[in-house]
Design a binder for these strands. Sequence first.
DNA 1: ACTCTCGATGTTAGCGCAAACATAAACGCG
DNA 2: CGCGTTTATGTTTGCGCTAACATCGAGAGT
Lengths: 326, 326
Amino acid sequence: MEDVAALAAVSAMTVSRALRDPTSVNTETRLRIEAAIDATGYVPNRIAGSLASRRTNVVGLIVPSLRNSLFAETIQGVSDALGALHPLMIADSGYALAGEEAAIRAFLAQRICGIVLHNTQHTTRSRTMLEDAGIPCVETGNLTERPLDMTVGFSNFDAACAMTEYLIARGYKNIGFVSLPIRDNDRAAERRAGFLAAHERRGLVPDRELLLESPPGLRSGGHALATLIERVPAVDAVFLSGDVLATGALLEANRRGLDVPNRIAIVGSDDNELQEAVSPPLTTLRFPRYQIGHQAADMLMKQLRNRSRDISRLDLGYELIERASA
Amino acid sequence: MEDVAALAAVSAMTVSRALRDPTSVNTETRLRIEAAIDATGYVPNRIAGSLASRRTNVVGLIVPSLRNSLFAETIQGVSDALGALHPLMIADSGYALAGEEAAIRAFLAQRICGIVLHNTQHTTRSRTMLEDAGIPCVETGNLTERPLDMTVGFSNFDAACAMTEYLIARGYKNIGFVSLPIRDNDRAAERRAGFLAAHERRGLVPDRELLLESPPGLRSGGHALATLIERVPAVDAVFLSGDVLATGALLEANRRGLDVPNRIAIVGSDDNELQEAVSPPLTTLRFPRYQIGHQAADMLMKQLRNRSRDISRLDLGYELIERASA
DNA sequence: ACTCTCGATGTTAGCGCAAACATAAACGCG
DNA sequence: CGCGTTTATGTTTGCGCTAACATCGAGAGT
């Protein structure tokens, strides 16, 4: 920076100012400085700047998995909202609370200015670290009642409940429910709770044999369908809530020559192009995952500027997409 | 850190050492320091550390898009290989060279210690910035002859060539080729070149009418198939190289009642669970995307330690997965 | 006993910036 | 015309750590 300052015949401080707030220096001076930067190929050192100002503009994001395309939507939303102003540091928790804690610790050491979490369950240590750090934090993935700081998303409970009531209303009697493993996964747990609540509201008692946990994956969805049919031959509908499980189940049903939806209805969640393209097209829940990421980052940035929060809980809802599979 | 040092009755320097290399301090001292860290809730400031040591341990990664599940595999590979030692900063270029340049500039300001790029085309400014920065750089996505520094991946040219020769060998005469838009996408360009080269090797002249560029997406693959059939009714095979184009085309063929592979063969690339699950299962190319990310990060870290490179070009190859669609 | 080495720790200085304050010139206004 | 006020820039200091060197005692070899 000294070199640039010398070349532009100003002090380093003026260069620093020109870089951070171009309006704060005289236009002529600014142009001289810009020319000097160009000539020297100077690249500002944000590390030094961050140390001096005691804050960075880096935002941290922790998702359960990086390879899951669902989270990819949210990641893209966050990245787009942050734009060029805030570099993005990403880590995956591996669906484990301990993994999240390790990532939080690493991020705090990097003195991130804010954090987005795709989880609402945390170790106590994670909680205290985040509180002590005093940085804005947005939890996404599931809308909790008592967020650490801010939260944006949709209610997995409500969504699953709505889908289940939809199936009940259409006359299905023996409805199976398949979710991802519930351990350390509040989203899956909420959905199962929603499934059960819908039955309770209608005065029905769900068959526990029809509740299943399944790893993610297309094939896994097929297995889940097979398991449920074997356990309870009378099953007439299955709600597979997670990833591409429903698509896998549908393909399996087709393979077995089961008539969907007359012999068995299949519905899913996390709508995507594929679910519409299969035959019959799947009735699913659609979640605004990109928007969640975008809004989360927006809320974070707003709080970084204002130092005052306007909303701390934002429900972006869900859509039930009716197609031919139920 | 002063607090920790006082509590452990040592100097700040010893605390710093204990943190960076626990073996360099006496075991008793280390335990006292660890206890003090625990008691005070001290979180090291890597920003200050980085400034003093003039290096960070942050690795940068730039992909064309964050929402694309193909890149997600590579991202996960990079993240897993880096582990807890190296925080990961991610940006997307939006499939644009200018976007990549902006991300590189931002990363260099953050003084990343190394970078992984999923692209082998760069603006001249990008190139000079990376050279001047003098940090290790791994290019993935397409194996270039003259990498900036290191490269790991597979040859899109070879893979497309092999698939095309496979189709030719099976007797298909009018082979269509669909790729993603080629502008600023060396991978798509290489694949088309491979397609053309395979014809040339066999002394065939491909019909230019059968070359198509298509945006990504399932539906888009269907459209591409429709377009090719309309243009050249005699088309008897289509190679859709990119994303889920082939799956979309297959679903469209099924919808139209076209016999695959007897009326028309459909083959794709980027194998995944879905391509195996559709009917008929798709013949595709499989690329080791996770491994590419993992190896790229490994090469980066090895060079950060050794300061000497052992390999600068690593071909992880591809597989041609034969199934029933051709 | 004397140096020599080596492990363990301390001291000094400075990384490259930005906050806070200082300065200096230009401006407006009664 | 003198005063406060504003705009544009400079100076000093320190952010929290680590590199480099200094120190200091314990053990080894002769």
